[in-house]
Design a protein around this nucleic acid. Structure first.
Lengths: 239, 239
DNA sequence: ACTTGTTTAAATGTCAGACATTTACTAGAC
DNA sequence: GTCTAGTAAATGTCTGACATTTAAACAAGT
């Protein structure tokens, strides 16, 4: 894989890091491949060596690359990626062709984890948590009608699930909310979002909200599982 | 808080990063405090500005610090820390006085998550996963007898739980195994490790192993919960 | 042949200094 | 008082030179 296939870039090491990271996430390099050298990258994108090094530092910190003096830069395998790093989530978000293996892994994780989180939320939620959930849900309702508001609807969707994680009032679970954004964004690009689909999704979200509001832990677990069953259909993981 | 209270350091930006990170994790600075300037840090530890910048880059990437040109470096609040970053786990490990709030948060997370993970492991485990679990368990048995092998015993303990996460065969859950090390290490420093305690802990671990081996998902869930009840006692969270 | 040691090239890592940019504060004009 | 310009101080960036590590090529000695 060469750099020629990548789009141009402008401004900042962060942009460059995103560009390279997304190419890696899309599988343009294989694990074990040697990554281009600093000077080549700098020459290709016409940026200073500093910018390149800053970008590569991020990719190394997220486990995408492995660098050793003298040898060069190697691409690490998917099992070494720090999927829970917020930077990684940001890079995955907006990547149209996310590796299906990743989409499935994240979904499987959510399917096993989110019911537990919802149960915790039902036990621990404070008034402000309920408020966040409600405002996110009403946002989802408002944007469900017209097709142009798909992006906005997704944001409210993310906000709803993130509010669930936050309502668990656990520092670790809360960190995991970052994974939601890429997962839900992937959902947008793969599902048709027909009206009946959205209605069904909304109804299931409402049950989660109600259960948490009623402090019904096991009910929240069940409802969260139902939401994710709907998600699985929309993602094309089942059927 | 000044730098004077910190021990000296030798060699490498990584060492410096660990030193500063552990000071932050121990709560030597309050959220919102201004962190010392690059030049001051460099002068105090007698390292180049580059090393300081590399170290601070790590602390920024893990959400411990927030840096903006012109303003300086601020200490972020605990809710912004990237607790799931492997670097963070490495720093927390070996920190004798980990913030009790963190210990409790990590424990609460494990108590809600690990039963689910054990259940998944019972469904998904392959032969090599079982082997890893068994070898870790026998290691725990061998090192349970004499008190000198506490550190080694803890390593086998970590290996056992890590093997459980790996056996779930999910990329996301697997990443979370990093959190185990600091959690279990904290346990060492706080518990007496009396012989009957260890026997009880071993028996409960054995039940997890057996349930996974028998592909008994709900049994593995129950057993994992029992292991963590034991852990809670040893950590002093209950009783 | 096989090993051992030396050299060479190439990659990342480090340093030092100058400069750029952003931010907060201060003094002064009106 | 309020706005503006200026100044100081902090992080960010660039550049070039040098250090260190690694792997491969090569040359000797046994």
């Amino acid at each position: 894989m060469t750099l020629d296939a990548l789009p141009p870039h402008q401004g900042g090491a962060e942009q460059l890091a995103r560009l390279l990271a997304q190419a890696l996430l899309a599988g343009h390099w294989q694990p074990g491949d040697v990554f281009p050298r600093e000077l080549d990258i700098g020459a290709h994108f016409d940026v200073s060596r500093n910018q390149v090094r800053n970008a590569l530092t991020s990719l190394t910190a997220t486990g995408l690359l492995e660098r050793t003096a003298g040898r060069g830069t190697l691409v690490r395998e998917i099992g070494d990626w720090h999927l829970l790093d917020p930077l990684m989530s940001e890079w995955m978000t907006g990547l149209v062709n996310l590796d299906p293996q990743l989409v499935r892994a994240i979904y499987a994780f959510r399917y096993s984890a989110e019911p537990v989180v919802a149960g915790l939320a039902a036990q621990e939620a404070q008034a402000e948590d309920i408020e966040r959930l409600e405002s996110a849900f009403t946002g989802m309702e408002k944007t469900a009608i017209c097709a142009e508001a798909r992006a906005e609807h997704a944001e409210y969707d993310v906000a709803f699930h993130d509010a669930t994680y936050r309502a668990s009032h656990n520092l670790v679970w809360r960190q995991m909310g970052h994974l939601l954004r890429p997962s839900i964004m992937a959902l947008i690009h793969r599902s048709q979002h027909r009206t009946d689909t959205l209605d069904d999704s909304l109804a299931r979200h409402r049950q989660v909200l109600d259960a948490i509001r009623n402090r019904d832990a096991s009910g929240a677990e069940r409802a969260a599982r139902e939401v994710l069953r709907r998600t699985a259909i929309d993602l094309g993981i089942v059927n």
